[in-house]
């Protein structure tokens, strides 16, 4: 999976925000405050070949009900893909 490099991630004292830059601001002029899991996903997108790889990575890193984690990770990745923030 690939990140759209026009979206920049910033870690500020434990909080993670994703900020569109350049032409990406035509679609979205603001920033996205993420929770810990969303920030984790964003940081590891390029290490994962497929959404299933990401599900495994999140399951290894966080506690929770596996079925719920899988569903939410796949939905989140699909949303990022739809708005052009990642590609796979």
């Amino acid at each position: 999976m690939k990140l759209n490099k026009l979206y920049v991630i910033k870690d500020i004292a434990g909080e993670t925000v994703i900020v569109p830059t350049g032409n990406a601001i035509q679609n979205f002029n603001g920033l996205i405050s993420t929770n810990e899991v969303a920030g984790f996903i964003w940081k590891h997108v390029e290490e994962c070949a497929t959404p299933d790889d990401m599900v495994r990575k999140v399951l290894d890193a966080f506690d929770g009900e596996p079925d719920i984690i899988e569903k939410e990770v796949l939905e989140f990745l699909e949303t990022l893909k739809k708005v052009g923030m990642i590609a796979y």
Binding site: K10, I12, E15, V19, G22
Partner: peptide, 18 residues
């Protein structure tokens, strides 16, 4: 915290986003 303050200040500071 700086993390909570960042989005609030970011929206009120003049930035040439292009």
């Amino acid at each position: 915290t700086p993390g909570k303050a960042f989005p609030l200040l970011y929206s009120q500071i003049t930035i040439n986003k292009w």
